[in-house]
Design a protein around this nucleic acid. Structure first.
Lengths: 290, 290
DNA sequence: AACGATATCTGACTAAAGTCAGATAATGCT
DNA sequence: AGCATTATCTGACTTTAGTCAGATATCGTT
């Protein structure tokens, strides 16, 4: 009754019946599931018909009919794409926005109801994040973003908070050599955020310098996404970006309070070097030639 | 992007598409999903037709047709129920058992594959247990069981292991006043196990004594099921059982290293009393008059 | 302008799931 | 024995989802 496979299967059973209930809640507004899914995809900002079709995995004939039925109900309007008249874009009408809002309210109420049942919501949410990340593992995208973007700032905030917990003396960004955002933008460097669905779950910065090397900074993976080898993927992406920018030498600093990071560096071709800056926090320094 | 409701909804999206994949894997054997679900329900020991219908939420006409199609394929046999000839019971034929085993193998392989992708399987399993318990919360049953049953012994083992972790000096059952199994059986007492699906997730013992009171022993809730107010449900059930046995006074001992337990007792009408035994582990003693 | 590629739409289909009104037979109760 | 109730089955439907082969219009390229 305790072997791992049984536990996964128990989870599958629990979730299958819960999803069934979720689907029927989508049916609560007298519309077949397929049409409801298309309406919601449009409401969530997917306007391109081909994109929706791809996202929902629908046949083009079926997709076309679902669009017609939503159009007949006065919920959406379609028009030719402005750059390419073969493609169509769908937008919600006023009635469609109302209907979409009703679906959103249903979904939110359902989620709130679930949370309200549970007295330790934070543990439950952490577990949900972990599982959602594991399930969407192969759909995690690594996107170059501005280090000042909302997603990047979220990652950095979590990163600093974690350093604060893990360093005995805490962590104060202002004492550390905080990289300038412009050093982590092309062409000097870049900043990469790992996105799972709409949630940022990791980041890494490539910071250009004037000393003949670039630095890797702010490598972070959300607790809920650990174990998916995302750190390695982020490092690979940062190195690839560095190569693309013509950078041939990378350096980084880290702290022995973060042993999993040092392990990753040692396993991926980095070698330890003497201290190369006077930042008070790091006590380990690495270099890698590309 | 971080509010609890969004996190729940992200989980729902992740799980919905994963369940879709799980469903299509069930289609891998050239049988419609409905028939496959009925076959699997029978394979998992649900023989009563009405019970399967209820479990899968099927219309009686549809159910009947699915049974016929499985019968035509030679996978099941149906017969009248021995107590009530209106009801029918379904059993797998030899070919049906083979087919069911093939589905089981598919499910197991799928679960194993999922675990293998993840390098921190234990954290993932703990998260799955937690969520499965939360989702099946309203389907948790409290069953009176023999304290020597497999489920009871599993709970007790976990309970002792947890005491070992939480007490500074560890925990050795043989030093404690281990209640005799027969004191936790009717009519002297009882033992109640909380079952979620097939997994025991909590227990409590009611131990009869010859001193004019009964004792509550071995209250335990699995870590994955905390926050569901299961401790309170178990205590309520134990008190109800005590009332049914004509018991009017309950006592229990506990340890201040288990603050959540003491909080529960104080909030549910128990009052602290002086030490009433010489067990080395407890340092807090409670009493409740029914 | 011609031509192959692409995006969508339409018509004609099938499979699966689900609904509903009886029919049939067994049961429990008076 | 009579009668309402219950469990299942059957026939006749509808809805939803999905498939596939063209038709139509547009695009990019030559």
């Amino acid at each position: 009754m305790l072997d791992p496979v049984s536990r996964v299967r128990r989870f599958n059973r629990a979730v299958t019946s819960a999803v069934g209930a979720l689907d029927t809640s989508f049916l609560g507004r007298g519309r077949p599931l397929g049409a409801a899914r298309v309406l919601n995809a449009i409401g969530h900002g997917r306007s391109d018909v081909a994109e929706i079709r791809d996202y929902l995995g629908l046949d083009s004939g079926l997709m076309s009919r679902l669009l017609r039925s939503l159009e007949d109900d006065g919920l959406i309007e379609t028009a030719a794409h402005e750059d390419d008249a073969r493609r169509r874009v769908a937008t919600l009408t006023r009635a469609g926005r109302r209907e979409f809002a009703a679906y959103e309210a249903l979904s939110n109420a359902q989620a709130e109801g679930f949370l309200a049942q549970h007295s330790q919501a934070e543990a439950l949410l952490a577990a949900m994040d972990l599982i959602a990340s594991a399930l969407t593992r192969e759909r995690v995208t690594l996107d170059e973003m501005d280090p000042r973007s909302e997603q990047a700032r979220y990652c950095l905030g979590e990163y600093y908070a974690e350093l604060g917990r893990r360093f005995k003396q805490g962590f104060d960004v202002s004492l550390s050599r905080d990289p300038d955002a412009k050093d982590m933008r092309r062409p000097r460097g870049t900043f990469i955020v790992a996105m799972s669905d709409t949630l940022p779950i990791g980041c890494v910065g490539l910071k250009g310098t004037d000393h003949g090397y670039a630095e890797i900074k702010r490598l972070w993976v959300a607790p809920a996404a650990r174990g998916l080898r995302l750190g390695r993927r982020l490092m690979d992406a940062a190195e690839a970006a560095a190569r693309g920018l013509g950078i041939t030498l990378l350096r980084l600093d880290t702290n022995s309070a973060l042993p999993e990071a040092a392990r990753l560096y040692r396993n991926t071709g980095w070698s330890e070097i003497p201290r190369f800056n006077d930042d008070p926090y790091p006590d380990l320094f690495f270099e890698k030639r590309l």
